[in-house]
Design a protein around this nucleic acid. Sequence first.
DNA 1: ACTATTTGTAAGGTATAGTTGACATCTGAA
DNA 2: TTCAGATGTCAACTATACCTTACAAATAGT
Lengths: 66, 66
Amino acid sequence: MKNRLKVLRAERDWSQAELAGRLDVSRQAVNAIETGKHDPSLPLAFRISRLFDMPIEDIFDDGARP
Amino acid sequence: MKNRLKVLRAERDWSQAELAGRLDVSRQAVNAIETGKHDPSLPLAFRISRLFDMPIEDIFDDGARP
DNA sequence: ACTATTTGTAAGGTATAGTTGACATCTGAA
DNA sequence: TTCAGATGTCAACTATACCTTACAAATAGT
């Protein structure tokens, strides 16, 4: 699952650790999501969506044909 | 995580098995989500969103304060 | 060059999502 | 009433999300 976390984080000049703190997950969890190793759980996707104030669909892309 | 799956399914007169087939998951997985025992994975949430043609946020509710 | 921060990654653990197969109950139709 | 479809649930299993601890490599600052 592709995502725009790295860009959104860069726009705010946040480190992975900073973002992890705001999401209440480990830094490694943020890294694993950014590097595409894991998908976030749906509850975590909601927290991310709310933190960046945009729909889940605008942050994550499951690459399905429209 | 609350969700409107049962209602959306009823509007289309689909059984849990019918929905499961369309989502390519087991009937038990659909039942577990509907009855609140599990949250769907993010990829499955995307498939549900696309099937019902509405945002994930309109189907699932994590109950966070607005 | 030295240092601190950031990022990537690994091992080993717990918790949860999803699987198949099975069974009990309920509801609607013949 | 009998029977099929629908639902709820259980067990045992696999896959994955997230955890802590730890370490190496890259980056930026002084």
